[in-house]
Design a protein around this nucleic acid. Structure first.
Lengths: 329, 329
DNA sequence: TAGGCATTGTCTCACGTTGTCATAACAACG
DNA sequence: CGTTGTTATGACAACGTGAGACAATGCCTA
């Protein structure tokens, strides 16, 4: 790749004039500008970011630490949202797949320090509380929050999403929903249980007995669904549930099959609702899964906006989900 | 962030000695080295990549242009594989989500030129032929290939994968498989049809009538599965197929539901096989989907290896899949 | 005492870019 | 005519790092 010096030589002009053309300084004669621009186009020249970073002491780089995120289909939208904003604002996003606590996390942080990243977004797979030490570069937490709130955080409003979804369920006439919740290691599960129960209480019902933990996450192993056992018990009762609310779409998928094996039809015999709107599963299930979409894309955007604008506040930003209505209840 | 000058000041030593410590020059006294290193640790100093890039005229950056890839769950492994290798070799990977032909593609290429990327990997969603102009920086094509082979390419060996999978199908005693293939816009579909037919021919069967296009990709819209219509016809015939081979796992998922609605049980009444091993669908389907896993992770790795090593050859590298046996046939 | 070696320092340059300041040519004005 | 302002251009330094050439210091050994 050539340099401004080379261009100046060819255009028989000074280095500075080339620089002016590139930086759109109006103080350049039309003819000179045209001449220089044609040489630039001819050479396919691009100004060196490295040199610009040196000179300006600004990197325009935002780091994105994805803690297992890109291996998990549900949250690629976090990355997409963040990248779209970075793009719009002329920033460069650097993505790292890491495992928290492992050496990959440290290495990524030092790489980002070496590039003089202006901010870092740390994204977790599941909504959770983490203990995140402060650092010289500002950090924004995504889909998680610092237990001592030293950093701004973007999380889904799980309480509200559960409340709203439950409200829709009641509005449609269901009265005996059972909630197959996520494991208690996921922070969202507690919030959702409260949202579910509060909404039920507002309708004069106590459903405390109807919340079940349906997902176990053994260390180092894939999560295990317990839909099978739970549904066997529930559907054997006299007062069968009329709707199964699932903590995530892949659990709902499992529920579809378990119900099928029991000879029960989704919606006709028992309705199903869920959280995630996971592409392509929610769409592909038959009947299509009516589910509360998590605002991952928007969360990614907001995180990047905060990272770029450098909010000094350490607020927790809770984003709303949106209900995607299909045919499962 | 501090500089080497600052460290030298604090350590009451010269700039040169600090530089020697950082660049592991052995000609430094143990005590001095320890003193300087402790100051480096204390300040959390990292040498500026920008300055290093300037000085060394090496960026250590490899670009990764993901043409819709990160929005598609099946091929995140391409990214993971590439990033793991970059990581291992001390390179920095820069990821861009682009749309080919759109301005995003041009912008990404100029960003990469600005960072003086040493090579660029271009990854496509589906195995396809594309017309890719040559450029100053070397490009490696991933999951696609240049119609004029000006660049090395990494693709899955679709012919072989189809042949091998069909062989397993015959070995297990199936004799009337029907192939619900991908659309003809996907290069893989032709290769797989040939692999399927060649293997059948080796077993003395002509199955040309049993290959069906089951996926339509209208421009700008999500793909449409035609499993419904095709299966209605096929299963109504006298000579019903004994196995449905699907072009991808999400099509297989659709097939599961269509069969269910017809009152047919997967494996008992009709077996199902597929390509992809898409997480988490293949695992979650009941019965678990036996499928030919595409070697995406390994492809990502190989692409990055080629990008780093700078192979001058423009070969097409075909990688083998591996059969994941579950319970669907 | 001289020579050898280990350690550290000084000085200089180069990488590509851009901000500051200076210079040149020329027009407008009193 | 001299002064001021405008437009166009150029010279130079500095960002942080790394490397070469070479000198200086101190300690050890012959």
């Amino acid at each position: 790749m050539s340099t401004q010096r080379e261009i100046a030589r060819r255009a028989k002009t000074s280095l500075k004039t080339v620089s002016r053309v590139i930086n759109r300084d109006p103080l350049v004669n039309q003819a000179t500008r045209a001449r220089i621009e044609s040489i630039i186009a001819e050479l396919g020249y691009e100004p060196s970011q490295a040199a610009r970073m040196m000179r300006s002491q600004k990197s325009n780089i935002i780091g994105f630490l994805a803690d297992g995120v890109t291996t998990t289909t549900s949250s690629i939208d976090l990355v997409r949202g963040a990248q779209d904003v970075a793009w719009e604002r002329g920033k460069q996003m650097m993505l790292f797949n890491i495992e928290r606590g492992a050496s990959s996390a440290e290495l990524a942080e030092s790489q980002l320090a070496a590039f003089r990243a202006e901010a870092v977004i740390y994204a977790a797979v599941f909504h959770q509380a983490i203990d995140f030490a402060s650092s010289t570069t500002p950090h924004v937490l995504l889909n998680c929050f610092d237990s001592e709130s030293r950093h701004p955080a973007i999380v889904p409003d799980d309480y509200r999403m559960a409340y709203d979804l439950t409200e829709i369920i009641f509005q449609r006439g269901y009265r005996r929903p059972a909630f197959l919740n996520l494991g208690s290691d996921v922070f969202a599960s507690g919030l959702r249980a409260r949202g579910f129960l509060d909404c039920a209480a507002a309708h004069g019902l106590d459903l405390a007995e109807d919340v079940h933990t349906a997902v176990a996450s053994p260390a180092g192993a894939p999560p295990v669904f317990m839909a099978d056992q739970i549904l066997t018990v529930l559907m054997g009762k006299e007062a069968q549930p009329d709707l199964i609310l699932c903590g995530q779409d892949i659990l709902a998928m499992d529920v579809y099959f378990v119900l099928g094996q029991m000879g029960l039809k989704v919606k006709e015999d028992v309705a199903v609702a869920s959280f995630d709107n996971l592409d392509p599963i929610a769409e592909l299930l038959r009947p299509g899964l009516s589910t509360m979409a998590l605002p991952y894309y928007e969360m990614g955007r907001r995180a990047m906006e905060l990272a770029i604008e450098g909010s000094a506040k350490t607020d927790i930003h809770r984003l709303q989900g949106s209900f995607v209505d299909r045919q499962s209840f």
